[in-house]
Amino acid sequence: MAAVTQAAAGTNADTDAAVIRASLADPDRFASIYDRYAGMLYRYAYQRVGAEVADDVVAEAFLSAFRGRASYDLDRQDARPWLFGILTREIATQHRREQARYRAMARSTYETVQDGPADRVAARVVADAARGPLAAALAGLAPGDRDVLLLVAWGQLSYDEVADALNIPQGTVGSRLNRARRKVRKAMGGFDPTTTMEENDEL
């Protein structure tokens, strides 16, 4: 994951921190941060609040990041945890929409037609069958537990990156994640799809 981030960031002189530092004198430079991470943040927001809201929360998150860039800790070369933290706060303002999305998904029946290798089709069928119960399980989680679970599973952040994003101790990340996964496993009859969510694009 770090290797991918560094590859996206380019040379050391072009790290996220370097770009943010340069943007203090030349605001247009901040567009590079948007280019690097807008797609990633949109996919995460889409899964949590749906297409109608995702554009707005991502736009607000980047606007907030731009306005607050002077307070960014330039010792942190990777801006992803910072951006995901801002986005999580924006998503929190859409709590009711997120809950409604999960409830609607839990009630829905999905029919998927896919071409391709048999094992890939089988994996998609399993994912479709799990989608409704998983959505119901996510709706039942405390907001803080859900944030941690989905930042790990969908945002693909490490424990320390989640701690940084949410400004909480790493131990709290671990306890919230364990509690959330325990509740998801119980709701899913012992199966925890969040451990392999990073392989799927959506619920």
Rank of each mutant, 00 (worst) to 15 (best):
A142M: 11
F30M: 01
E199W: 15
G171S: 12
Q77W: 05
A79T: 02
A25C: 13
D16L: 02
A106K: 06
A25K: 15
L63S: 06
Q170L: 04
A106I: 13
D75M: 06
G155M: 00
Y159H: 07
A122D: 12
M105H: 07
H95V: 07
A127L: 08
A59P: 03
P133G: 09
D26I: 09
T172C: 05
M40W: 15
F191E: 13
P133N: 07
L138S: 04
G144H: 08
P193I: 04
Y34H: 06
Y102V: 06
G190S: 09
S71K: 04
G144Y: 06
R179M: 03
R146G: 04
E52F: 01
V125C: 12
R131G: 11
Y159G: 06
R29V: 04
D160P: 08
P143I: 13
A163K: 01
R181A: 07
R29G: 03
A163R: 00
A51I: 01
Y42R: 06
A139N: 10
S23R: 02
N12K: 11
R89Y: 12
D73F: 00
P193N: 05
D147K: 07
N200W: 14
V49C: 05
V148K: 00
L41R: 06
E111Q: 12
R69C: 00
V125M: 11
A163C: 02
E52T: 04
G68Q: 03
R181D: 05
Q94K: 12
P27I: 03
L41N: 06
D201Q: 10
G50F: 00
R176I: 00
S158Y: 05
V173I: 01
G50H: 00
E198F: 15
V121Y: 09
R103S: 15
G189R: 05
S108F: 14
A13F: 07
V162A: 02
L74C: 03
G132C: 13
T195L: 07
W154M: 11
F84G: 03
A70V: 04
P143A: 15
L87Y: 04
A70T: 04
L87W: 03
E161T: 03
G50W: 00
D35F: 09
V173L: 01
Y72S: 02
G39E: 15
Y110Q: 11
D73Y: 02
L150F: 12
A70M: 04
W154Y: 14
L151E: 06
D26C: 10
A54G: 02
A123E: 15
R101W: 10
L141F: 08
A104R: 07
Y37T: 04
T15F: 05
V121M: 13
L149E: 13
A18C: 11
S64T: 10
S23K: 03
Y110A: 09
L203F: 12
T11D: 10
I91P: 07
K183T: 14
V53W: 00
I33M: 01
I91C: 07
R21T: 09
T15A: 12
T194V: 08
G155D: 00
R185F: 10
D201H: 10
D160Y: 06
L87E: 08
